[in-house]
Amino acid sequence: MHEVIESREGLKLQVEERERALVGQEDQIRELQYDKGFLEKKLETAAADLSRAKEAALEMKTQYDQLLADFNAQRLQQENKIRELQERLAERELTNRQLMLDLNRNQKEFEFKLREMESRERDKEVKIQHLEQKLRQAQNEIERLTRIISDFASQAISTARLSAASDAE
C-alpha cells in the first residue's frame, strides 16, 4: 500500500509538474499568439506602408514622367525659338550687309556727285569772276565813254557859245 501511495504521490507530483509545464506552455503559447498578433499587425502596417510607398513611388514616377515630358517639350520649344532667332539673326545680318553695301555705294555716289557739284561750282565761280571782270571792264568803258561824251558835249557847248558870242558881236 505504501508503494501504491508513494506511486500515487509520485504520479500526483508528475501530474502537477506536467500541469505546471502545461500552464507554462500555455502561457508561452499565449505569449507567442500575442507576439504573432503583434507581428501580424506590424506586418499589415508594413504591408500598408509598402503599398502607400509603392503608390507614392508610382505617383512620383508619373509626376517625373510628366515633368520630363514637359521639360522635353519646353526644350524642344526653346530649341525651335533659338533656331528661329538664329534664322532671323542671319536674315538681319544679310539685310545689314546689303544695307552697308547700299550705304557704301550711295556714299560713293554722293561723294562723286558732291565732287561734280563742287567742280561745277568752281567753274561757275570762275565764270562769275570772268563775267564780273567783263562787267567792270564794260562799266569802266561806259564811264570812259560817258566822260568822253561829256567832254565832247562840254566842248561843243563851249564852242557853240563862243560861236554865238562871236556871231553876236
Rank of each mutant, 00 (worst) to 15 (best):
E59P: 00
T146V: 08
L135Y: 02
A21W: 14
R92W: 05
D151A: 00
S166T: 15
N72C: 03
E3L: 13
A21G: 08
A165I: 14
D102F: 04
T95G: 10
Q133R: 08
L131C: 05
R136V: 06
R161T: 14
K12Q: 15
R144D: 07
A48K: 14
D123F: 01
A73S: 06
Q74V: 08
N140P: 01
A57L: 15
L101Q: 14
E121K: 12
K124H: 03
Q63F: 03
E91G: 02
N96C: 11
N80P: 02
R122A: 08
I149E: 03
S166I: 15
L162A: 10
L89K: 07
E118H: 01
R97E: 11
L50N: 07
D27M: 13
F152N: 12
D65G: 01
L99W: 06
D123G: 00
E84S: 02
Q74N: 04
A47I: 13
L114G: 02
N106A: 15
S150N: 06
D65T: 06
I82L: 03
T146N: 07
D70L: 09
K36A: 06
D65H: 04
L39F: 03
T45W: 11
Q74I: 12
R30N: 05
K124P: 00
L101M: 13
A48C: 11
A153C: 13
D151C: 01
N106V: 14
D27T: 07
A21H: 13
S158R: 07
G24E: 15
L22H: 09
L135Q: 09
S166H: 14
E3R: 07
L13H: 07
E16Y: 00
A138W: 05
Q74F: 03
A90I: 06
T146G: 02
E125F: 01
R120V: 05
L85V: 02
K61M: 07
K134R: 15
S150P: 01
V126A: 10
A90Y: 00
I149F: 02
L76G: 08
E109I: 15
E9Q: 12
I29S: 11
R97I: 08
S150R: 07
Q74D: 08
I157K: 12
L114S: 09
L162F: 07
D27I: 10
D49F: 11
D49E: 15
A164G: 09
N140A: 13
R161L: 15
A164T: 14
L39G: 01
L145W: 04
E17V: 06
E59Y: 02
Q74E: 08
I149G: 01
Q139V: 09
N104K: 14
K81V: 12
L32W: 04
A46H: 10
R92N: 09
S158W: 03
K54G: 04
L99R: 10
A160R: 05
K113G: 01
I148V: 08
D151P: 00
A56K: 11
F152G: 11
M117S: 10
A153G: 06
I5H: 04
A90W: 00
F71Y: 12
I142G: 02
E31A: 04
